[in-house]
Amino acid sequence: MGEKIDPNLWSDGPQPQLMGGKLPSGQIVFPMPVGDAAQGVEPHKLSRRGTLWSWTSQGFLPKEPYEGPGSGPGEGPPDFQPFLIGYVELPGEVIVESRIVDARLEDLHLGMELEFCVVPFNARYDTFAFRPVAAAESQAA
């Protein structure tokens, strides 16, 4: 396990959860606001299960501040690893933007059931992602 890419992004423990915030109005937001914007906002652990709201693929190496494969010293586009990204609707809470892992582009569809996970990002950091529930269950078996 690497370091968390942001120490406050998800909770620790065997069943980590993304950290959102609950506004005084009851609305759930993600990520948990910081600084003055956090006043009156209660930290709120988000659901580990959700459904796919939209998705896309990232087919080219992002410029800085990207720190994934291909961005390091002496690296370039040939070192880039394309990835999937999407919005995941956490029922009754909020729709969060996330990497989608353990899935192929052609398998993705609206409403697909997904589960939260923590994945290696680069040599130093882990980041968060969602993966198909079916993939999560087959890995557990």
């Binding site: 890419i5 990520p31 910081v34 990232q58 992002p62 990207y66 990835f83 990002f121």
Partner: peptide, 14 residues
């Protein structure tokens, strides 16, 4: 937050 750019989400094209 910085992680949003570090992990490759800070892209208008996405």
């Amino acid at each position: 937050p910085e992680w949003y750019g570090q992990t490759g989400m800070m892209l208008t094209t996405q």
